[in-house]
Design a protein around this nucleic acid. Sequence first.
DNA 1: TAGATTGTTAATCGATTAACAATC
DNA 2: TAGATTGTTAATCGATTAACAATC
Lengths: 221, 221
Amino acid sequence: MTEERKISMAVIRRLPRYYRYLGELLDNGVTKISSRELSEKMKVTASQIRQDLNNFGGFGQQGYGYNVEYLHKEIAKILGLDKTHTMIIVGVGNLGQALANYPSFSKRGFNLIGLFDINPRLIGMSMRGIEVMDIDKMEDFVKTNKVDIAILTMPKTRVKETAENLAKWGVKGLWNFSPVDLFLPEHVHVENVHLSHSLMTLAYKINEAEELDNGNDYKPF
Amino acid sequence: MTEERKISMAVIRRLPRYYRYLGELLDNGVTKISSRELSEKMKVTASQIRQDLNNFGGFGQQGYGYNVEYLHKEIAKILGLDKTHTMIIVGVGNLGQALANYPSFSKRGFNLIGLFDINPRLIGMSMRGIEVMDIDKMEDFVKTNKVDIAILTMPKTRVKETAENLAKWGVKGLWNFSPVDLFLPEHVHVENVHLSHSLMTLAYKINEAEELDNGNDYKPF
DNA sequence: TAGATTGTTAATCGATTAACAATC
DNA sequence: TAGATTGTTAATCGATTAACAATC
């Protein structure tokens, strides 16, 4: 029995950035890089980069550094980008349409195979060669097609119920854009994009900086 | 001289969730709540809630708990939601339009005052009562209007230069939706929304779960 | 007053950084 | 071989959780 090394999400969330940066190096014809060089360009410590990578194996070579192409590929494997994933979008409003038109997803093996909405004016329309279907047809669709990921870009009132149904029908991942917390069985993975939270965080940063400029600490009373 | 209590971003990023949840309680007519009750509903520890809040002051009352309305308002103040913020959107493609139509921003005091694009087919169009302007007019606009936040939803090739210009022209916060790292003077605050990173993280979770199901650890060789 | 729950200090846990032996 | 840089252990730092005295 191999030992369980539970890797923290803090590590995982840094990998896409490494991956992106290595992709840029690759495009620029760079073949090798050391953790120190990488750390300087990415403004993290070299130690962190080496620790992060060594959670998954020794990808470098002492005295040399890392082969860019190899490391790039290995990170892809860790993240599961060497596999293809099927996706549906539930709620084809502005945001849903924006995501449907995102070209870089399919490049990374995320293939959109279905669009669903409740709005009769949208049903039957075609985007990226995919017809928008009535949400009533979703259960059938999900059960007959293998759907890995459902993108939830619908009004928040219907998200909880929809998420629970999708989980029941075998969808493994939910990419949730609603300001709603989903508590689902642990075999269903949820990734939240809380845009309003992100904006509030930005407001905090701006606000805090101004208060410090004015020489004021935050005073509750 | 008041002491410097540098509050970590980990704490700040939890506040919007508390804020949202308290708002829901408020809508449901709940007037008081204890840290324990809150912790059970939000699936965090009561200790963490109390520690987080006590970074900013004592908002509760021993033996009673927290007044929902008061705490909700105080968190708003901490995040700077008691002030209004002006925003412009730079790049009115699918995602920019989606954000322009997001109703909840203005509810929280984030007011959209300008839309900019490079595409002649979009320039002159009107969204939410705001005309899309040529990006050439942006410098003038930013310098004559007080712009707090610029939402960057443009192609990544032009983001770096645009961000540097906006910083120079006095914009305090950038909400960056491009897969680009911005290194700017520290008085300019950047909040990144890296959708592709988020999706890759979801792919990892799905993938990892399957490998564990199959009894496989990740094997690099 | 007795019971409840905060505010806050102390203990624990986990993540990051530093250091260096291994090795290419 | 000498120099460089990894992989990995040890030290530090920070964040979370536990405990409890203060107090409403």
